[in-house]
Measured scan of single mutants.
Amino acid sequence: RTRTSFTAEQLYRLEMEFQRCQYVVGRERTELARQLNLSETQVKVWFQNRRTKQKK
Rank of each mutant, 00 (worst) to 15 (best):
V45Y: 11
Q48W: 03
E15G: 01
T30M: 08
R34N: 11
N49C: 07
L14N: 03
R34H: 07
L32C: 01
T41R: 06
C21M: 04
F18W: 08
F6M: 13
S5R: 03
R1Y: 14
S39Y: 02
R3L: 14
A33H: 00
Q19H: 07
L14R: 00
A8D: 14
T4M: 14
R50C: 04
T30C: 10
F6V: 10
Y12R: 12
R13T: 10
V43D: 02
E40V: 06
Q48P: 00
R51Q: 13
T52Q: 09
E40C: 08
S39R: 04
E9I: 04
T52I: 05
R1V: 10
F6Y: 10
R13N: 07
Q42I: 13
V43W: 01
R20A: 08
C21G: 09
Q42C: 03
Q10D: 03
Y23M: 15
N49M: 04
K56P: 14
S5T: 14
Q10Y: 02
E31C: 02
V24Y: 04
R50D: 00
T52L: 09
V24F: 05
Q35P: 00
A33S: 10
K56D: 15
V25N: 06
Q42N: 07
R27Q: 13
L38W: 01
A33L: 02
Q19Y: 03
K53G: 12
Q19E: 12
F6E: 03
R1G: 12
F18I: 02
E31H: 04
Q54I: 08
E15H: 00
N37W: 03
T7D: 12
M16H: 04
G26K: 09
E15Y: 01
F18G: 01
V45F: 12
Y23N: 14
K55M: 06
K56V: 13
L36E: 00
E31D: 07
N49T: 14
F18H: 00
T30H: 07
R27I: 15
F18A: 02
V43E: 02
C21P: 07
T2L: 05
E9C: 06
Q35L: 10
F47G: 00
L36S: 02
Q10I: 07
T4N: 13
K55R: 08
R51T: 08
E40M: 01
W46H: 07
E17D: 02
M16S: 12
T41H: 12
R34E: 07
K44I: 05
T52A: 10
V25E: 15
R50I: 00
E31P: 02
K44P: 00
K53R: 11
L14M: 05
R51G: 09
F47Y: 05
Q35I: 07
K55C: 11
F18D: 03
E28D: 11
E40R: 03
T4I: 08
E40W: 02
R13V: 06
T2D: 12
V43N: 02
R51A: 06
Q54A: 13
R3M: 15
L36W: 02
T52W: 06
T30V: 11
K53P: 10
E15W: 02
V24E: 05
L38S: 06
F47S: 01
R34F: 02
E17N: 04
R50H: 03
A8S: 11
Q22A: 12
R13I: 14
N37L: 06
V24I: 11
F6I: 11
E17Y: 08
R1M: 14
F6N: 04
E15S: 01
Y23F: 11
Y12I: 08
L32E: 01
V45C: 13
V24Q: 03
A8Q: 06
T2C: 00
V25A: 13
R3T: 15
Q48K: 14
E17R: 04
Y12C: 09
M16V: 11
Y12Q: 15
R50T: 05
Q54K: 14
N49Q: 12
Q54H: 09
T41W: 10
F6W: 11
S39A: 09
C21K: 09
